[in-house]
């Protein structure tokens, strides 16, 4: 069974990587981009029956730094 944890920077947290990507996209002529934020996706292969709250606990304890990051859990 798969679990997917999507980690993203909280709104308002400066994202210099996103800004650099934004500049590069503009340089390629993609002028329609208003903002870029970089996050990460962590895919876990977990035992059947693992609950969303168990994966959320993993995210709170390690996978995300909740000082600066939000996370979202998707199972299945």
């Amino acid at each position: 069974m798969k679990a997917r944890v999507t980690v993203s920077l909280k709104p308002g947290v400066l994202d210099p990587q996103g800004r650099a990507i934004h500049h590069a996209l503009e340089g390629l002529g993609f002028g329609q981009v208003a903002d870029v934020r970089v996050g990460k996706v962590i895919e876990l292969d977990v035992a059947d029956g693992t609950t969303e709250s168990q994966v959320a606990e993993m995210a709170r304890k390690l996978l995300a730094n909740t000082v600066i990051e939000n996370f979202k859990v998707d199972l299945g």
């Binding site: 947290v13 400066l14 210099p16 990587q17 650099a20 730094n65 000082v67 600066i68």
Partner: peptide, 17 residues
């Protein structure tokens, strides 16, 4: 120390990358 919660805040990628 910040990751362990002994100090507040976080250390992120340098602004100039």
């Amino acid at each position: 120390l910040t990751e362990a919660g002994l100090l507040p805040g976080a250390l992120m990628r340098n602004a100039g990358l």
